[in-house]
């Protein structure tokens, strides 16, 4: 029997490691601060707290689908259907409450159940039939855009239904905006709740840790006896739920349903997730990073709005450049980690 003890200090630095792990998200937060400071220095009224609060009003739906996307990407997959599912959910809200006259709370339940059910279905197809996530979710992108257009090819207003006023009902903090306070509508709180729940689920539950494990290596997770099927199907169900919820938030925010809304929202969500420090290949990343990624996106748009003479496409271009920078950064970090391996 041995009495010998082997000691090894953590040495190699890879993308998953201690400090290296925080480089991408650190860069995102630094960028966010730089954008904010730059805005404050250059524009009047940029230091109003409402500028920050507005990020969480305009981008609440994007934040929610990006959180769902974080789960999927962490598990090593991708979900292209979220933009269309979101648009369809908004349209379904309008149709159910305006045309069909169903009580709004019941409509919400129906829409959320639909989003989750879709996620379960496509997750099962991906897992059991080994269809690539890209292709399987592409089905959703086409299908729900088409179904949305079939319900209505023009805007549907929901102003007549009193229920939809609830989302933009707001709470003042520290007084009115003119007194240096800010306000947030209820729908922002829904988005915050999603962030917090997602954080807890990913970091403190078995399902969350399995998601990371499956994204790290599906084969290993299987051999370790983890519930791979449940995890993979679960993340798509979460993403579907989030997309439906985002559609509901959009209904609250605009009180109308546009059949061509949220085209390309899946790309914005993926970009926000990657800029938030999540590896597109899965296995590493943070929910709070996604929050930061969405805030960068919002802050870019805010800056462009303040500048006045710039157009909105600059946000897209900057987002692309950031995406490039982050992908190259992750690649460099991953390579330096590989090199140190013996």
């Amino acid at each position: 029997m041995t009495t010998q003890t082997l000691t090894e200090r953590p040495s190699r630095s890879t993308l998953f490691d201690g400090l290296t792990r925080y480089i991408p998200i650190g860069a995102t937060v630094a960028l966010l601060i730089a954008l904010y400071v730059g805005g404050v220095a250059n524009y009047d009224n940029f230091d109003s707290p409402q500028v920050v609060a507005k990020l969480f009003i305009d981008n609440a739906p994007l934040l929610v689908i990006a959180i769902g996307m974080t789960f999927v990407i962490l598990s090593g997959g991708i979900d292209l259907s979220v933009g269309s599912v979101m648009a369809f959910s908004t349209m379904a809200c309008a149709w159910l409450t305006v045309d069909a006259g169903i009580a709004a709370p019941l409509a919400l339940v129906i829409v959320l159940a639909f989003g989750t059910g879709w996620g379960l279905l496509i997750g099962a197809v991906i897992h059991y039939f080994n269809v690539q996530p890209f292709i399987a979710t592409l089905v959703g992108l086409f299908l729900f855009r088409g179904l949305t257009l079939q319900v209505s090819d023009t805007d549907v207003s929901m102003r007549e239904v009193e229920f939809w006023q609830w989302g933009m009902t707001h709470v003042d903090f520290f007084g009115k905006v003119k007194d240096g306070g800010f306000w947030l509508p209820y729908l922002s709180f829904v988005a915050f709740a999603v962030v917090i729940i997602a954080f807890v689920v990913l970091h403190y539950t078995r399902f969350g840790r399995s998601t990371y494990a499956v994204g790290g290596s599906e084969q290993s997770a299987l051999l370790m006896g983890l519930p791979v099927a449940r995890t993979k199907i679960g993340v798509y169900a979460i993403s579907g739920f989030c997309a439906a919820l985002a559609g509901i938030l959009a209904a609250f925010a605009t009180k109308s349903a546009n059949p061509l809304a949220n085209v390309g929202a899946e790309l914005d969500a993926i970009a926000a997730v990657v800029i938030g420090g999540t590896l597109l290949t899965g296995g590493a990343g943070f929910v709070l990073g996604t929050l930061a990624g969405v805030m960068v996106w919002g802050m870019l748009n805010t800056l462009i709005a303040f500048q006045g003479n710039l157009s909105s496409w600059w946000a897209r271009i900057v987002m692309g450049i950031l995406l490039l920078a982050f992908i190259l950064l992750q690649r460099v970090l991953a390579r330096s980690g590989e090199k140190r391996r013996t």
């Binding site: 953590p10 040495s11 890879t14 998953f16 490691d17 201690g18 792990r21 980690g337 391996r341 013996t342």
Partner: peptide, 9 residues
Amino acid sequence: AAPLSSYSI
């Protein structure tokens, strides 16, 4: 508490 990747194979 360190990630497994920080140790040798």
